[in-house]
Design a protein around this nucleic acid. Structure first.
Length: 523
DNA sequence: AAAAAAT
């Protein structure tokens, strides 16, 4: 079904078209007509299926812009999600002139109060700040006609039930209520019974929790080797946009530091960072000013960042649900993605638990060697330099290195210049700066039970399947994971995890990079 | 045992 087949006004359709939306997603197709009729709807669908538009468009349709009172309220679990929904609602409602404000903790409440006073039709907020504003009488809910609970299961997990009940009790009962949730635990059903009127339950068959658009891999690696393993892989795969998930806030800080040392453009998001920083980082990541976003599970759910090609689970998520959400940050909007989960030997039971939930096997991936990573980086640098030559940017690059560009350009051929720059920009694996990542407490041992494999039969952690695993780790399993820089010969293919992959020691810079810089006259 | 969310 197409968007223009819905009974939506021209102003909204214009913005939908501008955004390039044509075909409605299943959840949109089912929810929008019901919501437009004024029915209460419980929408159950996995993230990334277009839930915001599903509740947003009917809500925007109903707004009377000439009446500057708050007519719709959206409650969201995290601050970033609140901002994201606000932006999307604003975008679609722009031509119509709908004012959408977001309110959340961690940033100036006065500013938010001022913004509300300057007029709002729709308010999107996180529970704590909404309640705060209500208590201060800065948020009037008595003209609310549509109430939306986004990611309801997540809000309940976070212990927001009481807050949500308190907020709902301030909203007129004549309202329409829309509730969205990826799962339908009892507590959510109770909310449906308690706070909604004969809700229509729209369930998008979540046969699969994860999409086949995401290639799921795991790498078995010792804790102490995780960081190098990951950065090597990143060097080899050259992700356009990657998210690295860590288990704790401290861990995220460590990873940011380490990745910066290794030359990645990276920043992070977690709950201890101030909110402006969090939003700035997210914006920079969306704009492409950062290549790698490091985050705790605060960023696991719902964030819609287009173009994320890789999700690295530096730490295996302890909550299997969280795995599903994390890897859902890629493989969005029809694009493919890849996820790599690093698993230490004593965590293999968790891998099993996750696979039991997703009903999918992760493919084993062989770690890249330092040499492969180095070669890959070299290729990339070379390409960049070739491009720079074409763009005549090479001169500026030289100046950055404090060289007399004109003089050098006169002395060297373009190819030689490229190689020279290469030796300055690509670091030999032997000379990579050491990075120490502080150890985290190991995850609590998860016993088998409740139908989960744990370390029991079928688990991959018990070593019985070692030979099979080795097979699975062979190159065929890695298709798509690597680009053109696959090793050329097979003779070392069993070297991973073992000795024998040490590069021979080299001394001079030129030799290290496999290039020798010569003057034009030489031969 | 961790993270998120009001100050």
């Amino acid at each position: 079904m197409k968007f223009n087949e819905f009974n939506l006004s021209a102003a909204l359709l214009a913005e939908i078209e501008k955004a390039g939306f044509v075909e409605a997603s299943p959840i949109q197709e089912q929810t929008i007509p019901l919501a437009l009729e004024g029915k209460d709807v419980i929408g159950q669908a996995q993230t990334g299926t277009g839930k915001t538009a599903a509740f947003g468009l009917p809500t925007l349709e109903k707004i009377d812009v000439d009446n500057t009172v708050i007519q719709a309220l959206v409650i969201a679990p995290t601050r970033e999600l609140a901002v994201q929904s606000q932006e999307e609602l604003f975008r679609f409602g722009r031509s119509k002139g709908v004012k959408v404000r977001s309110v959340y903790g961690g940033s100036s409440i006065e500013k938010q109060i001022k913004a509300l006073k300057s007029g709002a039709h729709i308010v999107v907020g996180t529970p704590g700040r909404l309640l705060d504003l209500i208590k201060r009488k800065a948020l009037k809910l008595d003209h609310i006609e549509t109430l939306i609970l986004d990611e309801a299961d997540e809000m309940l997990n976070m212990g927001f039930l009481e807050d949500i009940e308190a907020i709902i009790s301030r909203v007129p009962e004549t309202r329409q209520t829309l509730l969205f949730s990826a799962t339908m635990p009892e507590a959510i059903k109770r909310i449906g019974v308690q706070f909604m009127k004969e809700p229509e339950h729209v369930k998008i068959a979540a046969k699969e929790l994860t999409t086949d658009l995401v290639d799921q891999y795991y790498i078995r690696v010792k804790e102490g080797e995780k960081f190098d393993t990951m950065t090597r892989l990143m060097d080899v795969e050259q992700p356009e946009l990657a998210i690295v998930f860590g288990r704790t806030k401290r861990r995220v800080d460590e990873l940011i530091r380490g990745l910066k040392i290794r030359g990645f453009r990276t920043e992070g998001i977690h709950g201890d960072l101030d909110q402006n920083k969090r939003l700035r980082v997210l914006r920079d990541f969306k704009n492409g000013n950062l290549d790698v976003l490091v985050a705790t599970d605060v960023a696991a759910r719902g964030l819609d960042i287009s173009g994320v090609t890789h999700v690295y689970n530096y730490d295996i998520p302890q909550d299997p649900e969280s795995y599903v959400h994390r890897i859902g940050r890629t493989g969005r909007a029809g694009k493919t993605g890849q996820s790599i989960t690093f698993v230490s030997p004593n965590e293999m039971g968790y891998l099993q638990i996750i696979e039991n939930l997703t009903k999918k096997r992760m493919k084993g991936m062989k770690p890249a060697t330092a040499e492969e990573a180095f070669q890959a980086k070299k290729q990339v640098a070379l390409k960049k330099i070739e491009r720079d030559f074409e763009d005549e940017k090479i001169r500026t690059n030289f100046e950055k290195f404090g060289k007399d560009a004109r003089k050098l350009a006169a002395e060297f051929t373009p190819e030689e210049l490229a190689m020279y720059i290469l030796s300055l920009t690509v670091q030999d694996p032997d000379s990579l700066p050491e990075v120490e990542i502080a150890r985290e407490k190991p995850l609590p041992f998860k016993p088998s039970g409740g139908g989960f494999g744990g370390k029991g039969k079928g688990g991959r952690g018990n070593g019985r399947r070692g030979d099979q695993r080795r097979d699975r780790n062979r190159r065929d399993d890695r298709e798509g994971g690597r680009r053109d820089f696959k090793r050329k010969s097979n003779k070392n293919s069993r070297d991973f995890e073992g000795k024998g992959n040490k590069r021979p020691h080299r001394t001079s810079n030129e030799k290290k990079n496999g290039f020798v810089i010569r003057n034009k006259g030489d031969k």
